[in-house]
Measured scan of single mutants.
Amino acid sequence: MLDDRARMEAAKKEKVEQILAEFQLQEEDLKKVMRRMQKEMDRGLRLETHEEASVKMLPTYVRSTPEGSEVGDFLSLDLGGTNFRVMLVKVGEGEEGQWSVKTKHQMYSIPEDAMTGTAEMLFDYISECISDFLDKHQMKHKKLPLGFTFSFPVRHEDIDKGILLNWTKGFKASGAEGNNVVGLLRDAIKRRGDFEMDVVAMVNDTVATMISCYYEDHQCEVGMIVGTGCNACYMEEMQNVELVEGDEGRMCVNTEWGAFGDSGELDEFLLEYDRLVDESSANPGQQLYEKLIGGKYMGELVRLVLLRLVDENLLFHGEASEQLRTRGAFETRFVSQVESDTGDRKQIYNILSTLGLRPSTTDCDIVRRACESVSTRAAHMCSAGLAGVINRMRESRSEDVMRITVGVDGSVYKLHPSFKERFHASVRRLTPSCEITFIESEEGSGRGAALVSAVACKKACMLGQ
């Protein structure tokens, strides 16, 4: 009897593995994704193909990295998701002549009506938060230079001027797309009239992360975010950046690689679950690469896999709870928690219980395998993109072996128990001629924006502006 049951459990697990095998990517698959990513990057950089390229390769006008001589107080704003952060950054000489960066910050959550109302409502709310922060720190009387981390696709015309191309991540505030974001912020500050600010720089969160990590390690020339969304930036040779005049030196390019796949480059790798996630998203047909990796989508992918296993009578005796059938019910943090389970399955059992399920031991094991399959594919897909960037940098610099540091931020990278190990191992397999160091950014977005502002202020002083 026991043997029969054991055989049935083994057969069930084997069927589960057959279904989950769809998520496995072979090294040849990853090399294919990497080569296609490089081709799209090239198209994004070139003037004649930029418009139709899915990977936009947006110039950021960040050319210099901090040298350690900029000092002063800077205000930093960070808008990239449902939370908005205001930070005071003091850049100065530390002990023994070292450079020191001290920060104080406060988080504000953005109400739904500000995210989806008008641009005026959104930026009025942001300036209200700045006003509140300055009151708390008794700094209303000071006109501070301000660095703005704005983590949406922007076409820069200068370091302090950028046109919002399109909202992502659930934002829909009308009247912002096609307009200068810094102008919208300046107008809102003017409307309030109770404080003055000098907006000197606007950067993407990947750029802010790279600059913040450069402060720790001067070989950091790539910034990457794996959180709600997924994106990367890197220092490109100016001669390859056709959208900006000049051939000397390097400029940081914001790849906006989340949109890779929007022209069909990933079609052969998309599964039924991916198509369902895409169809029910706020932007169907867009940001397809990001939807395979980002935390906004990972939990939902797992939920759809679990429903398939229920329908195949391989999980929960073929019956799903009402909660499990509800879109968004299986949160991405559950994926991390399930994979963090120590082996007694308590954590998995508790999560499934909150979803109205009474799982068996085998159910718990199957749910864990589903989570591992989805998150491992995410790590491997992400590795193909980064390997594409790094191999490109090595080739354009004609280096036999390139040493490089990548600064990384984002909740999936930082909080998932195995993502970074799987990701690092896969990147290294795909970049055999590179020695890569990964560092995690601390308060990256805010500190990085302030350091970019410090560079901009120093330049302005040198130019006598």
Rank of each mutant, 00 (worst) to 15 (best):
L2T: 09
L2C: 13
D3L: 03
A6H: 03
A11M: 08
K12T: 11
K12E: 15
K13C: 11
K15Q: 10
I19N: 06
L20G: 00
A21Q: 01
F23A: 05
Q24K: 15
Q24A: 11
Q24I: 12
L25G: 02
E27Q: 05
E28H: 15
D29K: 05
D29F: 07
L30D: 05
K31A: 06
K32N: 10
V33P: 03
V33F: 05
V33M: 02
M34D: 03
R35G: 15
M37T: 01
E40F: 01
E40H: 02
M41G: 01
D42V: 13
R43T: 03
G44W: 00
E48L: 03
E48P: 07
T49D: 06
H50Y: 13
E51L: 08
E51T: 13
E52F: 15
V55F: 03
M57A: 00
M57E: 00
P59I: 00
Y61L: 11
Y61A: 05
V62M: 03
V62S: 02
V62R: 02
E67S: 08
G68L: 12
S69I: 12
E70I: 05
E70D: 05
V71S: 07
L75N: 01
L75C: 05
L75A: 04
L77V: 12
L77S: 05
L77C: 15
N83T: 15
F84A: 12
R85V: 14
L88T: 04
V89G: 03
E93L: 14
E93K: 15
E93N: 14
E93G: 13
G94M: 05
E96W: 10
E96C: 14
G97N: 07
G97K: 11
Q98A: 14
Q98G: 15
T103K: 08
Y108Q: 02
S109M: 13
S109K: 15
P111Y: 05
P111L: 03
E112F: 10
D113K: 10
A114W: 13
T116R: 13
E120T: 01
L122F: 12
D124R: 01
Y125I: 09
I126D: 00
S127Y: 01
D132Q: 04
F133Y: 06
F133Q: 02
D135E: 12
H137W: 07
Q138R: 12
M139C: 10
K140I: 09
K140P: 04
K142R: 10
L144P: 03
L144S: 03
L144Q: 02
P145S: 11
P145L: 05
L146D: 02
L146N: 15
L146G: 14
G147Y: 02
T149R: 06
T149Y: 07
V154H: 09
V154E: 15
V154I: 10
V154L: 10
E157W: 13
E157Y: 06
L164D: 15
L164W: 12
L164P: 15
L165N: 15
W167K: 14
W167A: 11
G170D: 11
A173K: 12
G175K: 08
G178Y: 10
N179L: 14
N179G: 12
N180L: 11
G183Y: 10
L184Y: 12
L185W: 03
L185D: 01
R186P: 04
D187W: 02
I189L: 12
K190T: 08
R191G: 04
R192K: 11
G193Q: 13
D194S: 08
D194V: 09
F195L: 11
M197D: 09
D198I: 00
V199K: 07
V199H: 10
A201P: 10
A201Q: 06
V203S: 10
V203P: 09
T206P: 11
A208E: 05
T209N: 05
M210A: 01
I211E: 03
S212E: 07
C213H: 01
C213V: 12
C213L: 07
E216M: 09
D217R: 05
D217C: 03
H218S: 09
C220D: 00
V222G: 01
G223F: 04
G223A: 14
V226Y: 10
V226P: 03
V226I: 10
G227D: 13
G229W: 04
C230L: 09
N231G: 07
A232N: 00
Y234W: 01
Y234T: 04
Y234I: 00
M235E: 04
M235G: 02
E237H: 08
E237W: 06
M238E: 02
M238C: 05
Q239Y: 11
Q239G: 09
Q239F: 08
N240A: 09
E242V: 01
E242M: 01
L243C: 09
E245N: 12
G246T: 08
E248T: 10
R250F: 09
V253Q: 00
T255E: 02
T255G: 00
W257S: 01
A259I: 06
F260D: 00
D262F: 12
L266G: 00
D267S: 05
F269T: 04
F269E: 03
L270P: 01
L276N: 13
V277Q: 09
V277H: 05
D278I: 00
D278T: 01
D278A: 02
E279A: 08
S280F: 09
S280Y: 15
S281W: 01
S281I: 00
A282S: 11
P284Y: 06
P284S: 09
G285C: 03
Q287F: 05
L288N: 10
Y289W: 13
Y289M: 07
E290R: 05
E290L: 08
I293L: 06
G294E: 05
G295D: 14
Y297C: 09
M298P: 01
M298N: 04
G299N: 08
L301E: 07
L301Q: 10
V302P: 00
V302Y: 00
V302G: 02
V305T: 08
L306S: 06
L306I: 03
L307W: 06
R308M: 01
R308V: 10
D311E: 13
E312T: 05
N313S: 12
N313A: 09
L314G: 08
L315M: 11
L315Y: 01
H317T: 15
G318M: 03
E319I: 14
A320K: 14
L324F: 11
R325V: 09
R325S: 13
T326E: 15
F330H: 01
E331D: 15
T332M: 12
T332A: 14
R333N: 15
F334H: 11
V335P: 04
Q337E: 06
E339P: 02
D341M: 08
D341K: 10
G343N: 01
G343A: 14
R345I: 07
K346E: 11
Q347W: 06
I348E: 05
Y349N: 07
I351F: 04
L352A: 05
L355S: 01
L357E: 09
L357P: 03
R358P: 02
P359C: 04
P359A: 10
P359Y: 09
P359M: 15
S360W: 04
S360H: 04
D363M: 02
C364F: 04
D365R: 05
D365M: 05
V367R: 00
R368G: 08
R368L: 12
R369H: 04
S375G: 11
S375M: 13
T376F: 12
A379R: 00
C382S: 11
A384K: 00
A384R: 00
L386D: 01
A387T: 02
A387D: 00
V389K: 00
V389Q: 00
I390L: 09
N391Q: 07
N391C: 09
R392P: 00
S396Q: 08
R397W: 06
S398D: 07
D400H: 04
D400Q: 09
D400S: 06
D400A: 07
V401K: 15
M402V: 08
M402D: 12
M402E: 07
T405V: 08
V406E: 00
V406Y: 01
G407I: 03
S411E: 10
S411D: 14
V412I: 07
L415G: 12
L415E: 08
H416F: 15
S418G: 12
K420S: 10
R422T: 11
R422Y: 14
F423G: 00
H424I: 09
H424Y: 10
S426K: 13
V427L: 11
V427S: 12
R428C: 13
S433Y: 13
C434N: 00
I436F: 06
T437P: 00
I439H: 09
E442T: 03
E443P: 01
E443C: 02
G446T: 15
A449G: 13
A450G: 12
L451F: 14
L451G: 11
L451M: 10
V452Y: 15
S453R: 15
A454T: 11
V455N: 07
A456S: 08
K459T: 10
A460P: 04
M462Y: 08
L463F: 08
G464F: 05
G464Q: 08
Q465Y: 07
Q465F: 06
